[in-house]
Simulated scan of single mutants.
Amino acid sequence: MQLLPPLLGEKMNEWVDRADFLEIKHIEIYGTPSAALLEADQHWVDSGAISRTVKPVHVAGFTRGSVDAS
């Protein structure tokens, strides 16, 4: 979520709200999410527009580096 705004030039939520070609149905988060990540899609989850699953234990797949927030 922090990698896309510099490329898009705006907040991810604003971009997704205007992207009429996207229809988000479900979000899966692998690993332990930050409070900011959970907050980013919370309004969709609260409204019932999407469901969200958090899988905090890394079992398989890939890992990624972190983003420097400074």
Rank of each mutant, 00 (worst) to 15 (best):
M1Q: 11
M1R: 09
Q2L: 10
Q2K: 13
L3D: 05
L3G: 04
L4Q: 12
P5Y: 01
P5F: 01
L7Q: 11
L7D: 08
G9S: 03
G9Y: 02
E10C: 08
E10G: 02
K11Q: 06
M12R: 10
N13P: 00
N13W: 01
N13Y: 03
E14A: 08
E14V: 03
E14D: 10
W15F: 14
W15I: 02
V16S: 05
V16Q: 07
V16H: 06
V16F: 08
R18C: 05
R18T: 14
R18K: 15
D20M: 04
F21K: 12
L22R: 09
L22P: 08
L22F: 15
E23H: 14
E23I: 06
I24T: 12
I24R: 07
K25R: 15
K25L: 11
K25Q: 15
H26N: 11
H26Q: 14
I27K: 04
I27F: 08
I27V: 15
E28V: 15
E28D: 14
E28Q: 12
E28C: 10
E28I: 13
E28M: 07
I29R: 02
I29N: 01
Y30S: 05
G31W: 01
T32I: 12
T32S: 08
T32R: 10
P33S: 01
S34R: 07
S34K: 06
S34A: 08
A35E: 15
A36R: 07
A36S: 13
L37A: 09
L37F: 04
L37G: 03
L38T: 04
L38Y: 00
E39G: 06
A40Q: 14
A40P: 00
D41S: 10
D41P: 01
D41Y: 15
Q42R: 15
H43K: 13
H43R: 14
H43D: 12
W44T: 02
W44K: 12
V45R: 13
V45S: 04
V45Y: 07
V45E: 10
V45A: 11
D46E: 15
S47F: 03
G48H: 07
G48S: 07
G48Y: 07
G48C: 09
A49H: 03
A49F: 02
S51N: 14
S51T: 15
R52H: 02
R52D: 01
R52S: 06
V54W: 02
K55E: 08
K55A: 06
P56N: 08
P56H: 00
P56T: 12
P56W: 00
P56A: 05
P56F: 00
V57I: 13
V57D: 12
V57S: 05
V57N: 09
H58E: 05
H58G: 01
H58A: 11
V59C: 04
V59Q: 14
V59P: 00
V59Y: 12
A60C: 08
A60P: 00
A60H: 10
A60W: 07
G61A: 06
G61M: 05
F62S: 10
F62E: 11
F62Q: 06
T63A: 08
T63K: 09
T63R: 10
T63Y: 03
T63P: 00
R64Q: 05
G65I: 02
G65V: 01
G65H: 02
S66E: 12
S66A: 13
V67K: 05
V67A: 08
D68A: 12
A69T: 14
A69Q: 12
A69G: 07
S70P: 13
S70E: 13
S70R: 14
S70F: 09
